[in-house]
Structures are given as structure tokens and as C-alpha cells.
């Protein structure tokens, strides 16, 4: 089964454990500035919103890359940057409508979420289950369940 990161900002407290876990997984150091997932705090509304790549099926970044450095991992569905091929031209960062692929000046390559080969560190580190890793076909399940409960009248047929 293919899985996707499912993010529920309503559960996020803004603690950044996800950013720490991501940076350690990918860079071997605690360094949120190198995290592929980022938590945004909207102070006036007191909302904390983690955001990262959604792994588009026909990914703009992948299609824009002139050297085919971004490839699909068939096992996970993740669009992965192959650092040995990436030339750091940043065309993908322009092509991505969501801003979730970014240039890393330290490495001279781009970086994006690769779902940690099917075991995302951010989801494991999240203390409130604001980030979970669920069936790609049913990312709407929780919302559907909530709405199902709301639309239920409680009536029983005799």
C-alpha cells in the first residue's frame, strides 16, 4: 500500500520536533534550517501549520528538471532528488507551485521530502499525531468520519 503524509494543523503545537527529526535523518545533525518539512506559526491566529511536499503524481519539479535528477521511487511513490545528478540549477524550485523543493546552499543541490524510504522521521517524532503516515487512497478518512458523524441524524429504521 502506498502511504502519504497526512497533516492536521489542528493538532500541531508548533514544537518543531518534526523539523529536528527530518534534519537529523537527512543531514545527520539537529538543524531545522535543513529540514524538508517546515512548521509555520501564524501568531495572530495562534495556528501552527506543518507543510511539506505532497508528492504530486505528475510532479512539476520532476518534469522541469533538465537533467532528470528527480525520479519516482516506485516503492513509496516519493519523488526523490538524486544528488549525484542534480546540478543545482534551481529550475525545479521555480516550477513547484508549492515551494516545497528548495535549494541547499551548503550542498549546492536541491532538497525535498523523500518520505524517508517509506518511514518518515517527522511522523515518528510528532508528539501529537499532527503528522501521520496513512493510506494514500484514504487521506480524507478522518474528515469523512467527522462529517459522517455530523450528518448522522441518529434515526433507526424501526
Amino acid at each position: 500500500m502506498q502511504r502519504s503524509l497526512n497533516i492536521d494543523p489542528g493538532k500541531c503545537t508548533g514544537c518543531r520536533q518534526c523539523e529536528m527529526a527530518c534534519s537529523y535523518e537527512n543531514e545527520g545533525v539537529f538543524n531545522p534550517s535543513k529540514s524538508r518539512i517546515k512548521v509555520f506559526t501564524f501568531d495572530a491566529e495562534a495556528r501552527f501549520v506543518p507543510y511539506t511536499c505532497t508528492q504530486c503524481s505528475e510532479a512539476w519539479c520532476m518534469q522541469a528538471c533538465p537533467v532528470d535528477a528527480i525520479k519516482v521511487n516506485l516503492a513509496t511513490g516519493a519523488k526523490e532528488v538524486h544528488a549525484d545528478l542534480c546540478v543545482g540549477c534551481k529550475v525545479c524550485t521555480i516550477a513547484c507551485p508549492f515551494g516545497t523543493i528548495n535549494y541547499n546552499a551548503s550542498s549546492g543541490k536541491v532538497m525535498k521530502c523523500d518520505l524517508c524510504e517509506g518511514d518518515p522521521a517527522c511522523a515518528k517524532a510528532c508528539p501529537t499525531q499532527a503528522i501521520t503516515f496513512v493510506d494514500s487512497n484514504w487521506t480524507g478518512l478522518d474528515k469523512m468520519r467527522a462529517w459522517a458523524a455530523k450528518t448522522d441524524t441518529g434515526a433507526r429504521a424501526n
Binding site: 503545537t13 514544537c15 491566529e45 495562534a46
Partner: peptide, 13 residues
């Protein structure tokens, strides 16, 4: 009260 907010790295919040 609108939300509980964590400081950096805090799993209590």
C-alpha cells in the same frame, strides 16, 4: 483560550 503552544522541542506544550 485559543490554543496551547509549545516552545521549541517541547512535547508538553
Amino acid at each position: 483560550l485559543v490554543a496551547n503552544q509549545a516552545c521549541f522541542g517541547c512535547t508538553i506544550a
